[in-house]
Simulated assay, not measured.
Amino acid sequence: MVIPVHDVNPARRTPFVTYALIGANVLVFLATPGVAASLVGESSLTQLCQLQAFLDEWAAVPREMLHDRTPTVVPTGDVAVGPQGPGCVVGPPDYDKSPPLSVLTAMFLHGSWLHLLGNMLFLLIFGNNIEDRLGHVRYLLFYVVCGYAAAYAFALVNATSGDPLIGASGAIAGVLGAYLVLYPKARVWVLVPFLIFLPLRLPAWLVLGFWFGLQAVYSSGAGVSEAGTVAYLAHVAGFVAGMLLAWPLRPGTPPPPEPRGLLWGRQARPRQTWRPR
């Protein structure tokens, strides 16, 4: 797996929406119950029950999305001791949940720091150029539409699943798909783990094509031991949705600048030409 760190594709305008999305994701993550414990890898039963109750209220659940029905009994966030030992208390929900709206709120929820930082890195690198091409308002609508397409595609294939679906990955995958369509020849600096992290400047079509290929393979369950813990199918669906939405804009998109004389991030000295006197 390659790690992108920078693209050679400057934007003309400040990506205010991309920055706002990153800020909102970070703030929501910090407000999620149990985040403090995740920093040290320890969580109490109370924190786990509170997290489960939080996700049941705000995360998207496939069977709820497709049938527009919510359960009558949910975790309350409290802990009680029963015959089987301590556990999470369940009871009637004290909130009204809208399954379609939960798809939107789920886009700002993340399960770990690694999950959050990985998503925000891709959004920061590739989102600014898509926002620059679409404009602020259209970019925000594009982001949300890709997120919904990814979530409902996953739900259709997992119609009976009661597991919460969280993360901005589907929407960000749409951004990556649009970038592949609009800027396939843009150069992207990546770190390739080969004994050490080797920096390389690769074309976007290779970086993003490789990423999409991995998601497609993983979505089939191949190459992963726990395919059900990550919604790889949502990544695939979001990517394809982004490609389709961006395709009509392809003819009018100016090509990215072609970097010249760059060698490992530094300006290479021009080769000296010797002329006979």
Score class of each variant (00 low, 15 high):
A241H: 01
L117S: 15
L200Y: 07
V28Y: 04
A155V: 06
S102P: 06
L104G: 00
P203E: 13
D78P: 01
A24W: 08
A37K: 13
V5G: 09
R12V: 02
N158F: 10
K97R: 14
V26T: 09
F122Q: 05
H136T: 00
L123G: 07
G82H: 13
V79W: 06
V144F: 14
R275A: 06
D7I: 09
V79Q: 01
R277Q: 06
L262W: 13
P10E: 08
Y95H: 13
P164W: 07
M243H: 02
A31R: 10
R260T: 14
E42N: 03
L176E: 05
V5Y: 11
L176V: 04
P257Y: 07
P254G: 12
P15Q: 02
F29E: 10
Y143P: 06
N9F: 04
D78T: 06
A268N: 11
V17E: 08
V240H: 01
R13C: 04
V192M: 05
Y143K: 04
G213W: 12
P255T: 08
G167E: 05
G265R: 02
L244W: 14
Y139T: 01
L116K: 05
S102Q: 07
W247N: 01
I196E: 03
K97N: 02
G170M: 02
P164D: 10
R260C: 03
G170Q: 05
G265S: 03
W113D: 10
V181R: 09
A227N: 04
A268H: 12
G82D: 13
S44I: 10
P259S: 12
G213V: 09
R69L: 09
C88A: 08
V8G: 01
L116V: 08
F142A: 07
S161W: 02
D78N: 14
P83R: 12
Y143Q: 03
L116N: 08
T32K: 14
N128I: 02
L191R: 11
A168F: 00
L123K: 07
N9Y: 06
G228Y: 15
R250W: 13
T105Q: 00
D96M: 00
G85P: 05
L233M: 05
L214I: 12
V157H: 06
E64D: 12
P100S: 09
L200V: 13
T72E: 08
V144T: 15
V40T: 15
G127I: 07
V26R: 09
G238H: 01
W211H: 07
D132Y: 05
V61N: 02
P164E: 09
N128H: 14
V224Q: 05
L140P: 06
L263A: 10
R13D: 07
F239D: 03
L123F: 05
A150T: 00
W58M: 10
D163G: 08
Y19H: 10
L104Q: 00
L180M: 14
G41Q: 13
T160S: 15
A159I: 03
Q267D: 03
R13Q: 11
L104Y: 03
E64V: 02
V90M: 11
Y183N: 13
V26A: 10
D163R: 12
V90Y: 13
M120W: 09
R266V: 12
Q215P: 03
F194G: 03
T160P: 04
L45G: 04
A37F: 05
Y218L: 15
D78A: 15
L48A: 12
D7T: 14
C146K: 00
G77S: 08
G177E: 03
P164M: 05
A60V: 04
A227E: 08
L21W: 03
T32C: 09
Y143L: 08
P62S: 11
V224R: 08
S98P: 00
G252W: 05
